[in-house]
């Protein structure tokens, strides 16, 4: 809560402060806890509904803790043209989860993404901030080993 207060104090006077605040909160906590919505709303003179509306509108913001790392699979056309559909099901099988789920050991969450701008190296995935290109079922296994090292 101390962190959240500091973030709000630092950012609340920026024009259009809500998104920067939500980003800062999610960067430090990994998600935006529903219990801090009233605090943010009060600081920005907004209703709780408005803040909740923004959090729920954007795919990136989440209201619950994710796994230690988030795997994002690109579902867009360029990756589909290069076997993205097969890769998607291989990754789901490997991790044993579907989109918006977290592995039992809490290590990985899985999300879909529509384009990583890595379309010249399709199919692409992202794990946290790291982008990987020309991913295959085999290279995904190596990536997981590297990520867990």
């Amino acid at each position: 809560m101390q962190t959240v207060q500091t973030i709000i104090t630092d950012l609340k006077d920026k024009p259009g402060a809500l998104l920067p605040i939500l980003h800062a909160v999610q960067n430090s906590l990994g998600y935006v806890p529903p219990e801090i919505v009233p605090t943010i709303a009060k600081a920005l003179n907004l209703s709780r509904a408005e803040v909740h509306g923004v959090i729920s509108f954007y795919h990136y913001f989440r209201d619950h803790a994710p796994g230690k790392k988030t795997v994002r699979i690109c579902r867009a056309e360029s990756c589909l043209a290069m076997g993205g559909k097969a890769l998607e099901s291989q990754i789901k099988t490997k991790l044993g989860i579907d989109y918006h789920e977290t592995t039992e050991d809490g290590n990985y969450s899985l999300e879909a993404v529509y384009c990583l701008g890595n379309c010249a190296c399709s199919p692409a995935i992202q794990i946290d901030n790291d982008v990987y290109g020309r991913v295959t079922a085999e290279s995904f296994n190596e990536i997981l080993t590297e990520q867990s090292a």
Binding site: Y114, G117, C119
Partner: peptide, 11 residues
């Protein structure tokens, strides 16, 4: 907000 899939020139 280069969201168009298949594009990466902005990036």
């Amino acid at each position: 907000d280069e969201g168009d899939s298949g594009t990466f020139s902005d990036r």
